[in-house]
Design a protein around this nucleic acid. Structure first.
Lengths: 332, 332
DNA sequence: TAGTATTATGTAAGCGCTTTCATGTATAGC
DNA sequence: GCTATACATGAAAGCGCTTACATAATACTA
């Protein structure tokens, strides 16, 4: 591998000049620039990014923490973030936090030790206090899908409450009055917000919430399976269920059918997230769109703007969900 | 951020000694080690990995190229690879090749410029020649899901042909004789192999293959949609279809149902890959398991063994598919 | 045309670590 | 007690860049 030194010798200029043409950050006479470029070409020179990083104390890498690497939700997120940074010549280092406090902290420590210039965090288990403390720690970061008071400009969130509201409102508008709710783990902020939205929609229609219509699931298929069983057992008159995410909706659909219900005639279901498989389901799932890709890109833009000084327009921090109507809701 | 120099001063030893206790690669007296460890602790010292990389010309990063970052298939792959490396203190840099020759080459160049110690490549569009040439280029790599003669020890592949064989054999054993086949793009090696397996199974049962029973799809949902339409149009007596991947199977299922067929009674379908959503489908999809996660881990182990000198058992390079029986095949 | 402002280039000191080589010190063998 | 051997440590030269700072070349002004 050729080094900058060899290039400078071949071009008959100093190291500094070569560095200037590489980084294009200081005036260089055209003739000189050409000589250098030729020399680089002749030697097949590529700058050593490690050395650049050490000298400039900038690694051009961004650390991403997500709960899981697989799963349709995070796939879309990572895909769009990677594309955004790649275009800017930056690269991403990815770590999985598995919604576990220890693992999330470990991931963050790992990425910091890797000299990331910034982090994008989708973390669920660590506390707000931890994040505030991390904020003192030198490595800047932006938070996805979570709102922390003192750093609101760096939180990119979905209006989860409105999403929960929309899901239930959609059912209400279709004539349903006895609506079950399968929630995510209530210690997760988005699960709580979605449920709050559900309650608000109910209240608007003057409907009382009953605990027999609520089931706290796990955001996984199994939660949907158990949730349907529990809800139907507690109250056989339910005509619709909102599931706080699509995976639980999938479990709910399967179980409801196994219990002999026709979908959507006997039971309407609405999901949340609009994950890629939701339209492979049968009936195709009516759900709430979560523009996760766009939110990831926005997080990336924050980093590009504030860390790498790219001039970009203002950053949108709150995204709005919307209903995706498909076939799993029956009008009564 | 404290540096090794400050640690050495506080501990009253030389830089070299501190380095030795960090890397644990040379004898250090216990008392000295303790002094150094204490000093590191007191200063909250963490080695600067960039500086380590520059000095040791080892970046401890592994580049991964996959076709897409989203999609269930690659999600599983990435997840397992990341976990395997993370355990070893290495990190992965991920790039998407999008099954496009230019983008794949660009991704590889990008990762090389990032000083990756090794690459794991799931590339489809670049030629074998290109890979052979890349092989001269200094950065070692292992290839996933593709066999290149001269580097067979570094190709981790699925026995795709056997998979295709199993899919069709399963149908045959269930009494089907008129079997449609929706293939992936035939320029992709795995698509071709799977089809060859299909043919072999047919031959074993003395059944002739007819071109009206073959449709070349795109490995995406749309391919399944169009494939079913085409196949049913050409030959209404078909009782079963094998789809060369699960996404096409999803499209096929939807379309078949829209055409008024009952599944699986009127039409049996088998997929390929056993992607996570295949059991969310209705009917739950019978498919061929592709142990992609295990294969990714094996690729990671190759790197750990050959690049980082970890002593690991031998590396398995060929994986076997197997039938996952669910509900989409009807016995006649 | 001298004097000043601007632009272009070079010099050299790091960035924070690893690693070779040399040196020093303890242990064993006789 | 003296040499041979292994073990422990230190000094210093990089790894391949960036970036003050200094200096040289050129352009502009009056």
């Amino acid at each position: 591998m050729a080094t900058i030194y060899e290039v400078s010798k071949l071009a008959g200029v100093s190291l500094a000049t070569v560095s200037r043409v590489i980084n294009n950050n200081a005036p260089v006479r055209q003739a000189t620039r050409v000589k250098v470029l030729d020399a680089m070409d002749k030697l097949g020179y590529h700058p050593n990014s490690i050395a650049q990083s050490l000298a400039s104390s900038r690694s051009n890498s961004i650390g991403i923490v997500v709960s899981e690497l697989n799963g349709p939700f995070f796939g879309t997120l990572l895909s769009d973030i990677e594309a955004a940074f790649r275009r800017a010549g930056k690269h991403v280092i990815i770590a999985a936090g598995h919604s576990d406090e220890r693992l999330e902290k470990e991931s963050i420590a790992f990425l910091k030790s890797r000299n990331c210039d910034a982090l994008i965090l989708h973390v669920e288990a660590v506390s707000d206090d931890y994040l505030r403390q991390l904020n003192e720690g030198g490595t800047p970061f932006v938070i996805l899908n979570r709102f922390v008071e003192s750093m609101s400009d760096r939180c990119v969130t979905l209006n989860n409450q409105h999403g929960g509201y929309l899901a239930t409102q959609h059912l209400l508008r279709n004539g349903h009055r006895k609506i079950g709710y399968i929630s995510g783990p209530m210690w997760k902020n988005d699960a709580e917000q979605r449920y709050l939205g559900h309650l608000r929609a109910l209240a608007e229609y003057g409907i009382e919430s009953k605990s027999s219509l609520f089931y706290e699931g796990d955001f996984h298929e199994l939660g949907g399976v158990k949730g349907v069983a529990a809800l139907l057992h507690a109250d056989a008159d339910i005509t619709a269920i909102v599931c706080a995410n699509d995976e639980m909706a999938a479990g709910a659909v399967t179980t409801a059918r196994e219990q002999g219900l026709r979908l959507p005639e006997d039971l309407s279901i609405v999901g949340f997230d609009n994950v890629n498989f939701s339209h492979y389901m049968y009936p195709k799932l009516t759900t709430i769109d979560y523009p996760i890709g766009g939110m990831g890109v926005m997080a990336a833009r924050w980093v590009l703007k504030h860390i790498y000084q790219q001039k970009l327009d203002n950053i949108q921090t709150v995204f709005e969900p919307r209903v995706i109507e498909r076939d799993s809701v029956h009008s009564i």
